[in-house]
Amino acid sequence: MKCDSNEQRPVLGRSTRLLILALFAGLLLVGCGDGADEQVDADAIDETEDVANNEMEAVSDEPEAEAVDDDAAVEEEANGSDLYTVVCETDDQGRRTSCAVDQETFIGWRTLGSSCAVCHGQEAAGSSFAPNLIRRVTEISEERFYEVLAKGIQTEGSAMPGFEDNPNVWPRREGIYAYLKARANGDLPAGRPERLQD
């Protein structure tokens, strides 16, 4: 995952590829990250990548997907400006029931849970104490995000700590940003994502 450019990425202008893939439901990842499940993840990804080469641009074209295999679950892959990779399984209503993300984005999600949720709420969805970060990352630049994360903000009655010296957060900042962007872009629903094998 690359976050080396500091350019702002407007939501609408993002170059996200959405792909509909057909895979056997039985292969899909729903486990708790033990070895067996991760092996399955890896298989799923290989197949994903194969199909991805076809560059199918079929965002919500379910009939086409079904045409591939009637018994198949539907899977989408989103790749937000190279920030993250999300692969989702959907049910027959088109709702995503399980999603897997790249390792760094997964660690980002986890870090949010342990280092940010005490103030920003579960899934960083906002609390009575601190703002919804999913919304906030669409409003502030990437530059600003890292600046705030490094230095914090002091305001009357509330405060955002700086994390640049925190070994649990600072090395994982790109994953945090990637997770928030994936949520903000609608590529990933709330809840615990699974891990893709890189």
């Binding site: 029931t97 009575s128 809840g191």
Partner: peptide
């Protein structure tokens, strides 16, 4: 207020229990 104030968007969609 932190644990429960979060008004998660897209309540109908969410992975797991959220």
């Amino acid at each position: 207020g932190i644990g429960m104030a979060a008004g998660l968007e897209g309540d109908s969609e969410g992975l797991g229990a959220v």
